[in-house]
Design a binder for these strands. Structure first.
Lengths: 142, 142
DNA sequence: GGGCTTATTGATAATGATTGTCAAAAGCGA
DNA sequence: TCGCTTTTGACAATCATTATCAATAAGCCC
């Protein structure tokens, strides 16, 4: 087992993530840090975020555009309601869904089920862009 | 409006997708096609898949590794139970989840809610790799 | 069939996020 | 402080995907 060392870089990433409202990409967190004086390396930000995520201190998900987004979070498994405009994320309870996912999986003979459940929308502050005329909302996949 | 022309390439992609058990990436569909003689271009496969997806003739989702996966499918909105090993996908009904997602979204003042709900696991043919010893299952994100 | 117009193709370059490399720098226990 | 090891960071390397653009081929009218 490897000894984990404490570096100011790791702290910088952790606290930058803490001050963040919603989910952020590694790239934008890196530029924010650079913007505030720190000259931390990009690879380091990626590493730190990856570590935080695997330690359970951060939560990660993929944006519809395929970027990996992170958010500070210490609690266990849960899901999010994410604003497509400002990135605001609300943690939501989804016990029903948990149960449903497990049931569906075993019903079909699947084991070691994991699930991806996230809801995207526009929060009340970010009113939906031109309501009806939005014939092609962001990330319409189907 | 633009006129849509019928090319053998488009057909090739469509039928290659049809003969596919589960979800495939554009890349692997391209190599499959090349492997069977056709010398269709990669960009064309991407374009064809994108078109199929936006016409509703194909279904798309992101793998945990960040690739876009496609599958032939003509029905409306639904979700999948996907085998992490062989890619087999079972379409699952999730009316409860639909309702839940809408309710949660409006409960928090979110509008134009879309959701991502997919369950990954190992199908009965692909027994989970060394059951218990799997301390680090594929795509463990948290 | 013969042209004509224009959508489509495909080889390749470009992009953009993420990861690998490796020498230099910095933790931390002694 | 010393020395051993983990980390860092600049940069190169990957990898999926998209843009470019000249060459090709569909659909159509004759």
């Amino acid at each position: 087992m490897v000894m984990q060392r404490n570096t100011w870089q790791r702290e910088a990433v952790r606290s930058a993530l803490d001050t963040q409202m919603g989910f952020v990409s590694a790239q934008s967190l890196h530029s924010k840090l650079r913007g505030s004086g720190s000259h931390i390396g990009l690879a380091t930000v990626y590493r730190a975020l990856g570590d935080l995520a695997s330690e359970g201190q951060a939560d990660s998900l993929q944006s519809p555009e395929g970027e990996n987004l992170y958010r500070a979070c210490s609690r266990g498994h849960h899901h999010h309601l994410i604003c497509r405009s400002c990135g605001l994320a609300v943690e939501i309870e989804a016990d029903d869904v948990e149960v449903w996912a497990k049931r569906v999986a075993s019903l079909h003979g699947f084991t070691q089920a994991e699930h991806v459940v996230d809801v995207f929308g526009y929060c009340s502050s970010c009113v939906a862009p031109s309501a009806e005329s939005a014939a092609n909302p962001v990330s319409a996949r189907k």
